[in-house]
Design a binder for these strands. Structure first.
Length: 293
DNA sequence: GAATCACCGTCAGACACTAT
DNA sequence: ATAGTGTCTGACGGTGATTC
């Protein structure tokens, strides 16, 4: 156990010390085939792209009312122009590796993402048809059931994929990585995303980097010496810590994304997180693709 | 030198937490 | 309902100080 623990620590150390800046490679879908983001709303599907209050491109803070823009400390080597995408998914259950049998295992039922840079078309959210039943107990968790997502006007992930890639491409700065942030990204959201890409015979672009806000939360200083840290790492506890009031439907993807946007910038401030520091915390997309093999 | 004790670090197992 | 990770606790061994 301890050996495994040390291996885990060593592995994390290696990952976090590896500067991950890679050139964009094949996504499995050529840019020419990607749909124009402007055409999203013409589709029958319930996929939506929305505008939030615009912010200057060099401000990596969110563009949510009542929140001050967050600025990372500048370094000489990095310019602050990589998109920072806060995302969340709802699924039919927990992540289970389903090598070679894509009919089994859990699927994504909702996807939401918000670009912290804000501006026009800075959010993307959609229900996703999981092509399987949604367990009844999840109705209580996120109010998503089989009747809501298993119908013809809800797109499958393979339908959403080109839209998602187009959305990211529309937010991306050429030559810069795309930084995805989610709570428990390393063990839940990113592996799920990699699995769905895999099902579509596609690969996540190699310049996609994933940052787990749960890992960042572990580094936060305790407010009280007697505080039990393990009870303060979920998104709800973090939002309470920072006095953030939840808006929207309970435990739905975009609501959690909005909450995480607030929490993330507060955490970044507390941790004095630099852009370079964030890059060092990130895990490359290819890592999650390899997990499936 | 031998025996005893306290302290510290390591280890294994159990449990809790987290995501949906 | 799953799986990975962190924390806690008790057991154990090593080391140094103290006492006889």
């Amino acid at each position: 156990m301890a050996l495994l623990f040390r291996f885990s620590q060593l592995r994390n150390s290696i990952w976090s010390s590896c500067p991950a800046r890679l050139r964009m490679q094949h996504t499995g879908l050529s840019p020419g085939t990607l749909l124009d983001p402007k055409s999203y709303e013409k589709r029958l599907f319930s996929t939506r792209v929305q505008e939030t209050a615009s912010l200057h491109r060099t401000d990596l803070g969110p563009c949510i009312s009542g929140i001050q823009p967050l600025k990372f400390q500048q370094t000489s080597e990095h310019e602050q122009s990589a998109p920072l995408l806060i995302f969340d998914i709802e699924t039919t259950g927990f992540f289970q590796k389903t090598t070679g049998n894509f009919q089994k295992g859990n699927r994504i039922t909702e996807f939401a993402v918000r670009d912290l840079c804000g501006g026009k078309n800075s959010t993307f959210e959609t229900l996703i048809n999981p092509e399987r039943d949604v367990p009844g107990y999840l109705k209580k968790v996120n109010n998503i059931n089989t009747d809501l997502v298993c119908k013809p006007d809800v797109p499958r992930f393979s339908d959403v994929l080109p839209l998602l890639l187009a959305f990211v491409q529309s937010r991306q700065t050429p030559g810069k990585p795309v930084i995805w942030v989610a709570h428990k990204a390393n063990t839940f959201d990113a592996p799920f995303l990699a699995q769905e890409f895999n099902r579509c015979s596609a690969q996540m672009p190699e310049d996609w980097l994933f940052v787990d806000s749960h890992c960042l939360a572990r580094k936060l200083p305790m407010l009280e010496p007697s505080e039990d840290k393990k009870h303060l790492l979920n998104l709800e506890s973090l939002s309470k810590r920072y006095g953030i009031s939840a808006e929207g439907s309970a435990h739905r993807a975009m609501k959690d994304v909005t909450t995480l946007c607030h929490v993330f910038q507060k955490m970044s401030f507390d941790l004095k997180l630099t852009y370079e520091g964030l890059i060092n915390e990130a895990t490359k997309a290819s890592y999650f693709s390899k997990l499936l093999k």
